[in-house]
Simulated scan of single mutants.
Amino acid sequence: MLRTPSRRTHDAGPAAEALRLVKVTKTHGSGDGAVTALDGITLSLARGTFTAVMGPSGSGKSTLLQCAAGLDRPDSGIVLVDGTELTGSGEAELTRFRRNRVGFVFQQYNLLDTLTVAQNTVLPLRLAGRRVDRNRAREVLTAVGLGDRLGQLPGRLSGGQRQRVAIARALVTEPRVIFADEPTGALDTRSAREVLRLLQGAVRVHGRTVVMVTHDPVAASYADTVLFLADGRLAGRLPAPTADAVAERLAHLGDDVPAGV
């Protein structure tokens, strides 16, 4: 059962803390082939912030995002999103929670080819059984630069435009937290920059919280803070990041003593 420690109701305002993980562990496989993806991760992210998560391949960053978003279950520990504890809840409860309070942006867009731009955008509302406000959907699509593409199918859009549809789809439900997994990984430099500015706008203009996994120091420089992972553990944080500073920290992750966050 989903638990709200502060006893807030579903309609209450957002929690001051958007995300909290307490001693979260996750192991893939078993026996001699077991791999510890997350090793006692504890962190706290304030709402209205943009955080990038970085680390070498196999460091656990995608597993961290999946556990934090309720897409995967940790083996132990506590996950709270917007003040609500996700760990220990059933799949139906998790699904309802994600549909109402969480938005997702993935590298591969995950759009339905047979639906128009507008229909893809409002799909989460339909799945959640919520009222579809077409004017609101049009406003969101206009804000991401697609106000003139509402009736088009995804196949007629560029990669950057499809990712903007994905961002509009994430925003239309007015989520408290948006999780983005390599959102610019398949885009050219210009499109990537546009997508990152939209994510910044979601934070600075609309007060959302964005947690983004990325391998790109330039993409990470758009965030307020970068968290570094190594071998499933937090290995430091970098506020007000620049691309050069991020690249330098990544190059020396193995030399750093893991720092608490």
Rank of each mutant, 00 (worst) to 15 (best):
A34F: 10
I41M: 08
G31S: 14
H28N: 12
Q66H: 15
G33Y: 04
L65H: 03
G31Y: 13
L45K: 03
T51L: 14
K61V: 00
L65T: 02
G55T: 06
S57M: 11
S44E: 13
T49H: 13
P56A: 15
L43V: 02
H28V: 10
T63E: 09
G40I: 02
G40F: 07
A52C: 04
T63P: 00
D39T: 00
G40M: 08
S30N: 09
V53I: 15
S62Q: 09
T51S: 11
T51W: 14
D32A: 13
G58W: 05
T49V: 10
L38V: 01
G29Y: 12
A68V: 05
G40T: 03
L65N: 03
G60H: 11
G33P: 03
A34M: 08
G33S: 12
G31N: 13
L65M: 14
D39H: 11
M54P: 02
S57A: 11
L45E: 00
L43Y: 00
G48A: 10
F50S: 00
S57V: 04
F50R: 05
V35A: 13
G48S: 10
C67V: 15
D39F: 01
I41T: 07
G55P: 01
S44I: 02
H28T: 06
K61L: 00
L65G: 02
S44K: 12
Q66D: 04
A52D: 06
R47M: 01
G29K: 14
G31M: 13
S62C: 06
A34S: 14
L43F: 05
C67P: 03
M54W: 07
M54C: 02
S44Q: 15
H28I: 08
R47F: 00
G48R: 12
S30W: 13
T51K: 09
A52G: 01
G40W: 10
P56G: 14
D32Q: 14
G40V: 03
T63M: 04
M54S: 07
A68H: 07
S30D: 10
L38R: 12
S62M: 09
S59N: 09
V35G: 06
V35P: 05
R47K: 15
L65K: 04
K61C: 01
A46S: 14
K61G: 03
